[in-house]
Design a protein around this nucleic acid. Sequence first.
DNA 1: CTGAAAGCGCTTACAG
DNA 2: CTGAAAGCGCTTACAG
Lengths: 337, 337
Amino acid sequence: MTDPTPSTTIQDVARHAGVSIATVSRVLNGTAPVIPSTAARVQQAIRELQYVPRTAARVLARRRTDTIGLLLPEISGAFFSPMLRGIEAGVRESGYALLIYATQRAADAPLYRPLGDHNTDGLLVFTDSMDDDDIVRLHRAGFPLVLLHQTPPDGVDIPVVTIENKDGAFKLVEHIIVEHGRRRIGFLRGPERHEDSAWRERGYLEALAAYDIPFDPGLVAYGEFDEQAAAVAINQWLLDGVEFDAVFTGDDDAAMGVLHALRRGGRRVPEDVAVIGFDDVPFAPYVSPPLTTVRAPTEQIGREAVRQLVRVISGEPVVPLTLLPTELVIRNSCGCP
Amino acid sequence: MTDPTPSTTIQDVARHAGVSIATVSRVLNGTAPVIPSTAARVQQAIRELQYVPRTAARVLARRRTDTIGLLLPEISGAFFSPMLRGIEAGVRESGYALLIYATQRAADAPLYRPLGDHNTDGLLVFTDSMDDDDIVRLHRAGFPLVLLHQTPPDGVDIPVVTIENKDGAFKLVEHIIVEHGRRRIGFLRGPERHEDSAWRERGYLEALAAYDIPFDPGLVAYGEFDEQAAAVAINQWLLDGVEFDAVFTGDDDAAMGVLHALRRGGRRVPEDVAVIGFDDVPFAPYVSPPLTTVRAPTEQIGREAVRQLVRVISGEPVVPLTLLPTELVIRNSCGCP
DNA sequence: CTGAAAGCGCTTACAG
DNA sequence: CTGAAAGCGCTTACAG
């Protein structure tokens, strides 16, 4: 009945096993050969005392934290859950711990506080969670970084893991033009600095151009990748009497708000207005009508980003740009049966 | 142009400011009075050198980690996103860092590895992520714990933050009995050890009893709080010719699978089968038909749990049981117009 | 193969 | 108000 004193230390183990702390450390880390019988005694002592090495002491001595940081602008919507799941999986595979901080869009915190080289070995930086100056500074200082859904500032060479936005958006918009004859197609932008949004907008513009549909700036508004904001934008169009027969909502979260606003405004989807989203979040098949959208491999993105970061940390060669493909998912909100 | 050497240390700052490291530490932490002019010099040096104290060194010296751990069985479904958001918010308020680990239901890891007193000051333990023996052991060892959606093992006295499950389930089932005359009401259980599920089942049973509806074990199956599993369960009932005119799906994620399976099986919702969920996740209003469910204040739960844990850590008195109320949300899947 | 000792970068009594 | 020094709990050359 040895009771689990929370403060068991390597000294205790050494004493208990009748060896030096160096030896305990060696069997703990397999960092040097130890006579089997001695090792066994140490293992035994570790078990009996329920010894667990203090992370801080290891970190300090080794000068590595074995933890990865994740910087997000926020945690909301249906989008982050799969991404977190992927990141968690990646982190587990590679034996790192995961520290999370949501910057709250304000980029409020003075960077170094929450997450940095003082408490992590590297950072996963999601778009819109850290400004370019800081990214450049950290990278220049040699700190491992991987960017998620974001390309690096000019001139710096940081690995990126993201999805094919433009292509997906193009095909999606093309679909409602070609198959459903829509020509007054609205677009709802995501958050200002959110790079996915910019690419999706380009896909939208290129699709219009490809089919000789003149661009009407009055058909672009801010949906913020957010249900509420998207609903507000659509309500405004309805009030203003803007004519439109389709909306590319920017992402699926915004699509919810659009469907809602349209229904309350007495517009039928897809008869009066076709609605198309982006991401293919889990509930997309279940809304009414089932949402036509673009599938983004969000969980894979998270997992792959961790893998790349681990390679950066250990100095292995990395893939500078991982661009995961997206795929059109045709359901009914576009007008297909 | 002092460049940001990543390895700036308290020594460097001290030298730069012409003081001892003790003084630097004092202005850093405000832990003892320092002559203003000296303090200013130190601040200056900190700024110029872009000094950030190594977390590991602080932790080791202070014997506190200033971080909180979160143990989850998994990260999936629409449920965890609001909870994480609440926890993140709580953690930010209180100045702690957040370390997350998903045990993957297998309780695979030997507990101490991922999260414990070696790297956190306390743990938030979500139901089904740690077995009772370990909970008891940690608690006996004096390690701060708060349980989420889970009551403690017998005899130990650990703060709990959870929601009113039974009451919500009762009212929900009562609603479809009283208002919609349903009597063949199926129930889909959540994961085996998931405590919410057990309470919801009790609410279900009590509602049946209250209205003299005999309990039919053939109307209980496993939905696992999961879309796929729920769909499989319903398909099975359909195949077996089980008669039912309503399904209490356990949670909203499972409700999606149920709606899907029912549609493919040619059953109309709510005409043939009423469907009711639990949680009121963000997409619940947007499925077809809009889901009648019970609203769980999931984000608040997360935030409140952190608050309680912080109190435990600092030895302040805590609320032993925080039971947040739930609320019926009537939409259309129950049969209401 | 194993131990004594220095060192990782801080905090905090203890003197002054 | 400030500094010298011990100590937090490990790892890792350096000897042997």
